[in-house]
Design a protein around this nucleic acid. Structure first.
Lengths: 91, 91
DNA sequence: TTAACATTTAACCTAAATGTTAAATATATT
DNA sequence: AATATATTTAACATTTAGGTTAAATGTTAA
């Protein structure tokens, strides 16, 4: 985990869109798939990249696996970028 | 340009380190190279990725080309991440 | 236990990213 | 003009990422 994994995970548009969708609440893998023109296997791998980066957490409930966003790791990224911008706290 | 290019550029550790170095002031391509165990050609391409993303600007001065950081494009990234985190302005 | 459904994993393919060396370009100097 | 220095670009090799299909796994329910 860490900045590298976070930024790598965020660098793909499908993964960003998944995170965006999860803002409104958790979704099952299948529901997530429906929103994209790629196979479920492909989305499943995207989800595992997000999971490895700890940007999402998953919970199995019966036959479904629900994903929810975890924003805590974004703190480190925000700090890194802020520092790059000059760390003036403002601006 | 845009979020995609910015995040892609930031997803490589060498490029992040270059940006980090440029925080303290501008450097020539050669000076930048000295800090990495890869060839100048490789660094040159990293610099062009950063330049395409508008994260750095370059100025030729005689035989040297100086690079300086440009943080303005990071604003969009910060906003995107903040929004993902819940957009509560605080926290 | 078998069938059906949800999801992941494996095997494979192609395209993109990164690194190398060698050639090209731009500037400075003699 | 010729040479030296700084940097980029081209050509190529290797690795990594992302997509596909097919097989495997986990769960539910008949």
């Amino acid at each position: 985990m860490g900045l590298q994994q976070t930024l790598k995970a965020l660098s793909d548009p499908i993964r960003r869109e998944i995170l965006n969708m999860l803002k409104s609440g958790r979704m099952s893998a299948g529901e997530i798939c429906e929103h994209f023109p790629v196979t479920g296997a492909s989305i499943s791998r995207h989800l595992s990249v997000l999971k490895d980066a700890d940007l999402v957490r998953d919970t199995r409930e019966g036959q479904f696996i629900y994903y929810q966003i975890n924003t805590s790791v974004l703190e480190e990224t925000m700090l890194w970028i802020a520092d790059l911008k000059g760390d003036n706290d403002n601006d």
